[in-house]
């Protein structure tokens, strides 16, 4: 997403509420998310410094690999650097697709080093990571702007369930983005549990209404939730492959949302 067009898409996504701010964040795998994420503007300077620091750290580590080889590098540091910064929770709560890409690139560097790949290959992963960090900083700045204007919701600390079919679909899409992020973090069990919970706590509640509209669509999504996606995670498919399955599911969910909106309009009044 390096072009101006992609940047515009990102703006639109955040403005349209495609951030994850309506999801609940309690205890996460990477530690507690504090109320700081509801005051992004006050922390933008800190986030900029952290992104610079991160880029320097990853660059230095890859340079060490180039000059001294794998034995000179502690790949655990790649994860520690990222988990150390407050910027981590800022992007995790505001724009989860980029958060997932960050983890994907970090693991790209780690795996490449551990496999003893050519330094140039490792450098490519690191450059992609650098680019993603800057994009993520841009996304957080944009979110801070919208947050300041009061047009995006606060990050919730308690669970509030969506109450209409179309709202449930929006919530499912956000949860699936989070599945990619957790998978990119290599938290397979967390990702699998999230898929299961999303099915049981959200999709299962709307599929009765949806099946009246399009039985084959429900059938396809049932398979995605219960077979295709969990198996891809279980079998250790690449992050891009898992993301591809979820993108496909989101297309189907988009169709489902339209159908449910239409059904809601046609539904008779209670009284």
């Amino acid at each position: 997403m390096s072009s101006y067009t992609s940047y515009k898409s990102l703006c639109a996504a955040i403005a349209l509420g495609l951030s994850v701010s309506t999801l609940s964040f309690n205890a996460q795998a990477n530690g507690e998310i504090t109320d700081q994420v509801n005051h992004l503007k006050d922390h933008l300077g800190e986030y900029s410094e952290e992104v610079t620091w991160l880029n320097d750290k990853y660059d230095a580590l890859v340079t060490r690999y180039e000059t001294d080889g794998a034995k000179a590098v502690d790949t655990q540091k790649l994860l520690d650097y990222w988990e150390e910064v407050n910027f981590h929770s800022a992007i995790e709560t505001q724009y989860i697709p980029l958060y997932a890409t960050i983890w994907q690139n970090i693991y790209g560097i780690k795996t490449s080093i551990e496999n003893g790949d050519d330094a140039q290959q490792v450098r490519q992963h690191q450059q992609a990571l650098t680019q993603t960090f800057w994009q993520a900083l841009g996304a957080v700045k944009l979110a801070a702007h919208y947050q300041d204007k009061g047009v995006i919701d606060k990050v919730k600390t308690t669970d509030t369930a969506p109450t209409t079919g179309p709202a449930v679909i929006t919530d499912i899409e956000k949860r699936l983005d989070k599945v990619v992020a957790k998978y990119a973090e290599q938290l397979k069990e967390v990702a699998t549990t999230m898929v299961h919970d999303t099915y049981m706590e959200r999709f299962e509640g709307i599929e009765g209404a949806l099946i009246e509209q399009d039985a084959s669509l429900v059938e396809a999504l049932e398979k995605d939730f219960n077979v295709t996606l969990p198996q891809a995670i279980e079998n250790g498919k690449s992050v891009d492959e898992v993301r591809g399955i979820i993108d496909d599911m989101k297309q189907k969910l988009g169709k489902a949302q339209t159908l449910l909106e239409k059904a809601e309009q046609n539904r008779k009044d209670v009284f």
């Binding site: 509640g205 709307i206 009765g208 539904r267």
Partner: peptide, 30 residues
Amino acid sequence: GRGEGGLYEKVLEAIRQRNPKLNLQIRRGA
């Protein structure tokens, strides 16, 4: 308790609209 894909919500909203002096607070969950 979580119900039938929003239809209970429609019922509750209809009751609210019919009774404007009712201050109905709802806590949802499993």
